[in-house]
Every structure is written in C-alpha cells, then in structure tokens.
C-alpha cells in the first residue's frame, strides 16, 4: 500500500505542479498573481472536449489543440484585461482585481455556451493498467506524468536555452533595464502568457479526463496556488517541487493519518511553512520595488 500511495501522491502532485508552474511563470516575470489561471485551465478542458467530440482526435493531437487554443485565449486575456492597466503603471492590485473579474467572466461565458452540467470526455486512454503488480498504475496517470515531465522540461529549455527565454528572464530581473537593452517587453509578456496558457490547456485536458468537465473545474487551482507558494512563489523549479510535495503530503495525511482531518492538517502545515520560511522551499526573497 505504501508505494501505491506514493504513486497516488505523485499523480495528484503532477497536476498541482502543472498548475503551479503556470502561476509561478507569470509571477516571476510580472510580479502579480493571475487569478484567471484556473479559468484558463477550465477553458483548456472545454476546448479539449469540443475538439475531441467534433473530430475524434486521439490524446496527443487533442492535447496540442487544447494547449494552442488556451495559449491564444491567455494572450488575448493579457492584451485586453492586464496590459492596459500595466501600461498605465498603476498598482498591481488592479491587475489582481481584473484577473478575478476575468475568471468569473470566463466561467459564466462557458456556462452560457455549454450549460452548467457535467460533461464527459470520450475515452482517450485505454482502461488497461500499465502494471497491476506490485502497484496499480493506471494508463492515464502514467501518460499524464510523462506529459507533465515533458512539458516542464521543454519549459526549462525555452527559459534557459533560447533567446526568447533569456529575454523573459531579463524582464523578470528588471523590466526597465531589459527594455533599455532593446528587449520588446510587450512581446515577452505575451510569450509568457502563451506558455502559461499552453500549460493550463494541458492541465485542463487531464483534469477533464480525470474529473469530468464542468464550469467550476478551475476552482481546483486553489491547490495549485498553494503548491506554488509552498515551493516558493516565482520559482518554476519550486513550483514543481511544491506541487509534488503537496500531492504526496496530502495523500500520506489521508493514508496514515485520518481523512477527516487531512484538509485541516494540510492548510495548518502551509501556515506553519509560511511562518518559518516565508519564501517557500526554493523561493528567493522577494522585495517590492519602491
């Protein structure tokens, strides 16, 4: 049972990590929290649902379609809802509020188009487990972990091995200095939102397959947000570690503690970590620039 629970934890944690990375990516560059990220994940799930029911695509093309579609929506959201506020140079608090509003707007938009009921994605992954002994590994969870690893590795590649990635990191250190060096800040921001959107689309499809597709699916980001704070807000590696750690801890609290107390314990633990190490596991100390 021990190893089964470890796998359960990593499988839940993988999803948290995927969500947390999207948060952290935006936070590390823009220094604000995009609360609409959850709704983007939900949009990803619906795009996946619409594409699969219309075309019968298998898993990989469906994932690509959802990633591309959500990336576009994410860039549009930034252009319409965040950029005008950012350009005016007012407090990021307004962006926070704006992202909250966008989140509600997207949720209601989907409710109007698709209705409030649950939808099930057609079966994209076979039911036959990869292995059944000594632990049971469902094919879906197995594929999901592969895709999570691949996405995170490619994100790392973009950030550290490409010119665009270097520009992104430069903007993250100091947007003004980067702009003076000839970096097109607006384009970098759009790219960051596109990447975060693509990750949201991938997370959305997996969440949709696992937990069905419904307008409030995005509410699951709460755990992803917690994971990104846990790992260190603004650090992409921290988000991965935070996500996996949160998944495993949560599962072990249920497995070896009690399922009735685990929701209390997990948040108590988070408060404790924030008190002892406010920057999270891998985070750097963040100071507001005056």
């Amino acid at each position: 049972m021990f190893w089964q629970q470890v796998f359960n934890g990593l499988s839940a944690g993988g999803i948290y990590a995927l969500i947390a990375v999207g948060f952290s990516l935006i936070y590390s560059i823009m220094r604000y929290i995009n609360l609409a990220h959850g709704s983007l994940i939900m949009i990803g799930a619906y795009i996946g649902y619409a594409v699969v029911t219309a075309t019968n695509f298998p898993l990989i093309p469906a994932l690509l379609a959802a990633a591309a579609g959500t990336a576009i929506v994410s860039v549009i959201v930034e252009r319409l809802a965040f950029r005008p506020i950012r350009v005016r140079g007012v407090s990021t608090l307004y962006i926070l509020v704006s992202s909250m509003v966008v989140s509600i707007l997207l949720q209601n938009l989907v409710m109007v188009i698709f209705g409030p009921s649950f939808r099930t994605l057609p079966q994209l992954v076979s039911d036959v487990p990869v292995v059944t002994h000594p632990i049971n590994i469902a094919r879906l969870d197995f594929y999901m972990m592969i895709v999570v690893v691949l996405s995170l590795v490619s994100l790392n590649f973009v950030l550290y091995r490409t010119k665009a990635g270097r520009a992104m990191r430069a903007v993250s250190f100091n947007p003004k200095a980067a702009a003076l060096m000839g970096v097109n800040t607006d384009r970098v921001v759009s790219l960051a939102f596109a990447l975060a959107g693509a990750l949201a689309g991938i997370a959305g499809i997996f969440l949709g397959i696992k937990y069905s597709v419904y307008p409030q699916l995005g509410e699951l980001i709460l755990k992803g947000f917690v994971a990104s704070v846990f790992g260190g807000l603004g650090s992409v590696a921290g988000a991965v570690v935070g996500g996996l750690a949160l998944g495993v801890i949560e599962v072990f609290l249920i497995a070896y503690g009690s399922s009735s107390f685990s929701p209390v314990m997990i948040y108590a633990l988070l408060v404790l970590i924030l008190l002892l190490r406010p920057r999270g596991i891998l985070g750097r100390i963040v100071e507001d620039k005056v």
Binding site: Q5, N8, A12, Y211, V251, I254, S259
Partner: peptide
C-alpha cells in the same frame, strides 16, 4: 470508513486505503 469534503475530486488515497 473514509471521508472526503464536498469539493474534493480525487479519492485515490482513501480508496487505496479501503481496497487494502
């Protein structure tokens, strides 16, 4: 006997415990 809260969607851990 295992429980969850209304907004949970993943019960794998509880179910692993029950199935064992």
């Amino acid at each position: 006997k295992e429980v969850f809260t209304s907004n949970d969607v993943d019960y794998s851990s509880q179910l692993t415990k029950i199935i064992s």
